[in-house]
Nucleic acid binder design. Structure first.
Ligand code: MN
Ligand code: MN
Length: 295
DNA sequence: GCTGGAA
DNA sequence: TTCCAGCAACGCCAC
DNA sequence: GTGGCG
């Protein structure tokens, strides 16, 4: 029994993707149809990496960034020159049909580049991904997010926040597209290093497992050409089908988990309480970071 | 979920 | 005809 | 150099 959603034929619409919540393939497709407007505001026209689970949570999963043959036309394709100098096809979407078509292909999670298709060498998102060590509670993540926000405000930048749907929080500064990848990476690395320098018991910028006890890894590596981060309003392939949910700063103070919102709540919330004004990383900000860093 | 090559 | 593997990748760092 | 890592 096929079912048509947003013009896309959904095979096995009653297949259960999340056994714990009962969310079916058609339910997931309908979610992406109805969340399309707020989701595409941020994620349209960005190169994508898709996390696909064609047999649901019980089956295998794999990332896919190069759209294969057999991808429908509503999942659009563009050529991007990779670091090895070779051109490769990348997927992006522009409309609800593209999101639904991806769901039909088994996509649960959408991961986005921090740059848009029309100006790939001018990223427009600075992402700081807070990854707590095992055993650290959400209260530590929340206070870290608020603390990093204060630091950014001191520099003259106003980030917004997103619950990852897993254990962490993302801080995002929406950028004017006036700098390149090297500058963005440099800024993100320096900012994270400064946080770790000032509060070494609280933060680390090293991804090595051993060096990471009881601390929060500030993952600044989301800010490189070719890297991706979970898209706002993407469902996560985790128990309970949590959603990566933007939250207002006032609201964050009263939240006690990074997987607070599911598909129903996400649709009701949209971008409420979240401000995404494009901002610039200025020379003065780079110099302030540089001056404060010991090494 | 779909392709392409191997068995 | 059925079976099965592939389906991202990138800098950093410990070894 | 390889491997883990996110
Ligand atoms: Mn490639
Ligand atoms: Mn994370």
């Amino acid at each position: 029994m096929a079912e048509r959603i947003e013009g896309v034929e959904i095979s096995h619409p009653e297949r259960v993707i999340f056994a714990d919540t009962g969310l079916t393939k058609a339910g997931l497709a309908r979610y992406y149809q109805s969340i399309a407007e707020p989701m595409l505001e941020e994620s349209a026209n960005r190169p994508l990496s898709l996390l696909r689970l064609p047999d649901g949570m019980a089956g295998e999963r794999f990332f896919q960034k190069h759209p294969g043959k057999g991808f429908p036309k509503s999942i659009r394709q563009m050529q991007i020159t990779e670091s090895d100098g070779e051109d490769a096809a990348y997927a992006y979407v522009t409309d609800a049909a593209g999101l639904v078509a991806a769901a039909q292909m088994g996509t649960v999670e959408f991961h986005i580049w921090p740059a848009r298709r029309d100006r790939l060498e001018r990223p427009d998102r600075l992402v700081l991904d807070l990854d707590p060590d095992e055993g650290l509670g959400f209260d530590a993540v929340r206070s870290a997010a608020l603390s990093l926000r204060d630091r950014l405000l001191d520099l003259g930048l106003s980030p917004w926040a997103m619950l990852s749907g897993g254990k962490g929080v993302h801080l995002v500064v929406t950028l004017r597209r006036n700098l390149g990848w090297d500058d963005l990476k440099h800024f993100a690395r320096d900012f994270a290093a400064l946080c770790a320098q000032d509060e070494p018991d609280r933060y680390t910028v090293e991804l090595s497992k051993a060096s990471r006890k009881g601390r929060i890894f500030i993952d600044w590596l989301r800010n490189e050409r070719g890297s991706t981060a979970i898209a706002p309003f993407s469902v996560r392939a985790r128990p309970g089908a949590p959603v990566a949910a933007p939250v207002g700063w006032d609201e964050l103070a009263g939240i006690d988990t990074a997987r607070a919102f599911g598909i129903q709540a996400a649709q009701e919330r949209g971008w409420a309480g979240v401000a995404r004004k494009p901002q610039s990383l200025t020379r003065a900000m780079f110099e302030a970071l540089e001056a404060a860093l010991a090494g």
